[in-house]
Amino acid sequence: MATQLSLDAVCACSENVVARTIEGEVVLIPLIAGIGDEEDELYTLNETGQAIWQKLDGKKTLKEVAVSLAEVFDGPASELEADVLGFASELTKRGILVAK
């Protein structure tokens, strides 16, 4: 049962996923069965997702990630926090990120 993430959570890439950057594109490649809906699926990120991914270092809280994104993105802090939380929730649900 997945728990609700909060902005205090620290997230990192699951050891069951290989994250590669190919020609500037983040590609997430499942290592074990059950990550994707289909056995042969890979994942890429949209522009927002890619920006958030680059800031996730397994040390910063999600709130700190949102703060660091404010240096490069305009917009209210609440929107950035909502994006970071939404991103982390989506990837945690898929088993790509794990909350530490």
Partner: peptide, 13 residues
């Protein structure tokens, strides 16, 4: 920069 989904699934085809 609010968006609902961030991940793009890339199937075989």
């Amino acid at each position: 920069m609010t968006q609902k989904t961030y991940v793009v699934q890339r199937g075989r085809d």
